[in-house]
Design a protein around this nucleic acid. Structure first.
Length: 271
DNA sequence: AATATTGCCAACCGCATGGCG
DNA sequence: TCGCCATGCGGTTGGCAATAT
């Protein structure tokens, strides 16, 4: 036996909402607040299912919604966030005040996809359509990647960060990856590159070696999981990357403005 | 003017997730 | 631990408007 439907389908209105229904919903939520979507329709005198009410409110009636076309800045932000997060529309929407996940999703599918394709960029991978999609990490040539930490802990870096006017925000390091990483150039908040990987908040090499950093490696919409890799630093100490469960950590980090535990990065796995 | 096609977006649907008893 | 329930999420669809033929 399957799951019971979220509401009684019969005697329910479907399709476009009327002005009167909108008014009823708005007035009810104004006086009772959001939530209890299942019981809301009956209480508000609406012949709609709870889901439908929730969607109508979130996507259309909410007073904080921004109307009108997307700006160029919003376009750019959506593209960058999509390169990081993939089709996680709700996460992307969380970074665009006044925009809904549905709105962004529609906008992506109708405008941005086409725009990227016209530039020869694959909207799914954010790479040139003719480029090889999966890098061979074993190759000996250097690779440039962007290593972005999300956090507010900049021990020993406060002065530097203040000078740069970025005490709390993205810390991005441009790193030349060789078989053994010996060259790391730090940059503060450069443009997000489309080649990204996400790691826990920045710490210096020594500190990093003291806790086994879990490096969730995302290559343009794909998660590239790998076994633990030991890398040797200049001073001879070793650093372990990837595949380390740090869920026991009690630390929470501000990832893209969303408070999260490190382990939650797993939920960013691309489909 | 009539019809076909295309683009857009609000809304729906089914599944996933998390909380709770 | 399990099952139920409410809610959230992302993919898909339906219908309207604009445009092309």
């Amino acid at each position: 036996m399957g799951r019971s439907p979220c509401c009684e389908k019969e005697h329910m209105n479907k399709g476009a909402w009327t002005k009167e229904e909108d008014e009823r919903l708005v007035s009810y939520i104004k006086s009772h607040g959001e939530g209890c979507w299942r019981s809301l329709p009956r209480a508000a005198g609406l012949l709609r299912c709870g889901k439908s009410c929730r969607l109508r409110w979130i996507n259309y009636l909410r007073p904080d919604l921004k109307r009108g076309n997307f700006t160029h800045d919003e376009d750019e932000l959506i593209i960058k966030l999509h390169s990081l997060l993939g089709n996680k529309w709700s996460l992307i929407a969380a970074r665009l005040p006044g925009r809904t996940d549905n709105e962004i999703k529609n906008y992506w599918n109708t405008h941005i996809k086409r725009k990227l394709l016209s530039k020869g960029i694959d909207p799914a991978t954010h790479k040139g359509i003719n480029e090889v999609k999966i890098p061979d990490l074993k190759k000996t040539e250097d690779q440039i990647v962007k290593d972005i930490s999300f956090g507010s802990r900049f021990e020993g870096k406060e002065e530097y960060m203040e000078q740069k006017g970025n005490k709390n925000g993205l810390v991005c390091k441009e790193e030349r990856v060789e078989y053994y990483p010996v060259f790391v150039e730090e940059k503060i908040c450069p443009d997000l590159n489309l080649e990204l990987r996400i790691s826990p908040p920045w710490q210096n090499q020594r500190e990093r070696s003291s806790y086994t950093a879990s490096r969730f490696y995302m290559e343009n919409g794909m998660e590239c999981s790998s076994d633990t890799t030991k890398c040797q630093t200049e001073d001879g100490s070793s650093i372990s990357y990837s595949s380390i469960d740090i869920s026991s950590s009690s630390l929470g980090y501000d990832f893209l403005g969303l408070k999260t535990r490190v382990l939650d990065f797993r939920s960013l796995e691309m489909k």
